[in-house]
Nucleic acid binder design. Structure first.
Length: 262
DNA sequence: ATGGCGAATGCAATTCGA
């Protein structure tokens, strides 16, 4: 079974590329981020035509997450409030960034973590607060639910220096700052493995490259799209890799898909 | 990076992403 995560930067713009890639790679489940469309305008039929069940949670212009699965998913939870009480979630479901569902007793959690803009900005504070709620969300899923967990998506955080093409001088850069990394480490410490690192130890592997300055052709990227697995599930993974091929196409997403095989 | 790219909105120029 192959489960993938891909920030597509608009599903309406990228639908042909996504469909082509799903068919070529025989993907069982895909978690998409930045679909950038309200649910009523999502190209649902375009993907049900090739056999997928769609679970979508979008909004106008920004954010938006979706899961496509060849097998139907069970127990779909929309937003943080699908799991946490409203007083904890506050208004953090205003931005559509979280969706989850169950397949084969595995709960798949699809995340689009806020970007954060720059250190000290309001959006940076929002990102840090959002990560605190995420920690509570995953703690609840771990403690009160019986399924193994696969948590994936665009985290907008590079955990280690080797996940950045040139880490020097980026200590205060968004996606690399200590506070963000610490928040992510706390989440991993709940009991998750960054499964990409089970199979690949070295650097120079990235999942996002800036559209500007020929970032991709120079391989100046960041590894910010992740798949995290709980212990038992981690033992069942047989590979995890980033497919850079879609990033080579004309009019690509700025992210490449990350795939985990079981 | 004082943002040059790309997408959405909405129809020109602005906002946002990372």
């Amino acid at each position: 079974m192959k489960i993938a995560t891909w920030n597509v930067n608009s599903i309406r713009t990228r639908k042909e590329q996504v469909k082509q890639w799903l068919m070529e790679n025989k993907i069982d489940v895909i978690c998409l981020q930045e679909t950038k469309v309200i649910d009523g305008d999502f190209p649902v039929d375009f993907f049900t035509d090739i056999g997928y069940h769609l679970y979508i949670y979008g909004q106008k212009a920004y954010n938006g997450v979706a899961i496509f699965s060849l097998q139907p998913l069970e127990d779909i939870r929309y937003g943080f409030s699908g799991v946490l009480s409203e007083n904890i979630v506050d208004n953090f479901d205003e931005q559509k960034r979280v969706i989850s569902g169950v397949i084969n007793n595995i709960r798949i959690v699809n995340l689009y973590v806020p970007n954060g803009n720059s250190l000290g900005s309001q959006k940076y504070e929002y990102k840090l607060r959002w990560l605190e709620i995420l920690k509570q969300y995953l703690t609840t899923l771990k403690n009160e639910y019986s399924e193994e967990l696969l948590v994936c998506g665009d985290f907008n955080i590079a955990l280690e220096d080797k996940d950045i093409y040139k880490a020097e001088g980026k200590e205060n850069h968004i996606m690399a700052s200590t506070l963000e990394r610490d928040a992510l480490k706390e989440i991993l410490n709940l009991g998750f493995a960054d499964i990409f690192r089970k199979f690949t130890v070295g650097g120079d592997y990235y999942s996002w490259w800036d559209y500007r300055q020929g970032g991709f052709s120079k391989n100046r990227g960041w590894r910010i799209d992740h798949i995290y697995l709980t212990d038992k599930l981690s033992q069942k993974a047989i590979n995890c890799y980033i497919d850079t091929n879609p990033r080579k196409l004309t009019q690509p997403s700025d992210h490449a898909p990350v795939i985990c095989e079981f």
